[in-house]
Computed example of a mutant assay.
Amino acid sequence: MSDNAARRIHVIGIGAGSPGHVTAEAAAALAEVDVFLVADKDGSKDELVAVRRAICDRFIPAEHAYEFITVPDPKRGPDADRDSAEYAQGVRDWHAARTDAYVRIIEGLPTDAVVGFLVWGDPAFYDSTIRIVDAIGERIATAVRVIPGISAFQTLAAAHGIVLHRVGEPIHVTTGRRLVDEWTRAEAADLSLGTVVVMLDGHLHCRELAATHPDTVIHWGAYVGMPQQELRSGRLADVIDEIVELRARLRERHGWVMDVYALGSASAPVHTGGRLA
């Protein structure tokens, strides 16, 4: 099948919530899209859908008509109660159900309609849109373009005014469910992970390190890049209880919370009140 017959799909990184995060490349790609497909998670994150709509309205020329379709998101289940194998299978099933839903909609669109997926942050970091689009491509001929965005941990570092890595040392990016195990294994092998950036940690597993590594410095942020942004930093043992309590209050207030944090050595700078201490 020729490229002209392939469905054009744009996977667009839109940053961590601020319209200022949208690059010129992303803005140009937005203006080419005819139909945006956005997952609707039981209405619990209407604010995130609203932000996506606002970004489209801001960057797409008024003369370009486009459609915004929210797609009910399949249920994924209680990830916290699953072991690694069950978690991986649950994610695969979820991706398959998402793929089915998107294929049904795309097959009903005009053949020349450009489809867009708006990715929070950057499509390469802890987001599965590219995988799902690849699965769509196994069933529909596609021509896919991926546009990078500013990730949450980039925004976190900028908000705190820090460099994530120390000179000559690595950065380790992981998830909350893997944090303690990877930290422990690295110590046992006498290896340095460098600064550890933690994403997708709804349970703040770093609490388990506070007693044994109290001087570890945490830089934490919720809703980074958005008007309701909250930042905290300091010795892990000193600030973790405050962060846990604040996160719970924010989730209750907004109905959702997205946060990210970095763990560094005791010599890492701490951002306080708009300056470095």
Rank of each mutant, 00 (worst) to 15 (best):
L236C: 05
I105N: 02
S233G: 06
D215F: 02
V244Y: 05
V260W: 06
A266N: 04
G221F: 10
D83H: 13
A189Y: 02
E47H: 12
F125A: 07
L109R: 08
Y126F: 15
P110C: 03
R53V: 05
A143D: 15
I162S: 10
D42R: 14
G13M: 08
A27T: 07
A113L: 08
G116S: 07
V51H: 06
A80E: 09
K45N: 08
G168M: 09
I106W: 00
A39S: 14
E107R: 15
L209S: 05
K75Q: 14
G149A: 01
W183V: 14
S267G: 13
E242C: 06
I55G: 03
I147Q: 01
P227W: 02
L191D: 11
H165K: 05
L276C: 05
A28W: 05
G13S: 09
R53P: 05
G274P: 10
A6N: 08
G225Q: 04
T216K: 07
R178S: 11
C206F: 15
C206N: 01
I132H: 00
L156S: 10
A211N: 04
G194Q: 06
A143R: 15
R247M: 08
T184G: 11
S44L: 12
A39P: 14
G121C: 11
R235I: 07
A80Y: 13
R251Q: 15
V167L: 15
D134N: 04
D42P: 00
R98E: 12
A189P: 04
V224R: 07
G255P: 05
D100R: 15
G273C: 12
V270C: 08
I218V: 15
V217Y: 01
H213D: 14
T111Y: 03
D112R: 11
G176E: 02
R98S: 07
A27G: 14
R207V: 12
R98P: 00
R8A: 02
V33L: 03
H64S: 05
E245M: 07
P78W: 09
V91E: 05
E242G: 12
D201L: 09
T23F: 10
L204C: 11
R76L: 14
D190G: 14
H160A: 09
N4Q: 11
G234L: 09
V217G: 04
Y126M: 04
F59T: 07
A26C: 11
V22Y: 07
S2L: 04
W94Y: 13
A24W: 11
H254L: 14
D238G: 04
A159F: 06
R249M: 10
L231S: 11
E138P: 01
V257Y: 06
A97E: 09
V244N: 05
T272M: 11
H172W: 12
E230L: 09
F117R: 00
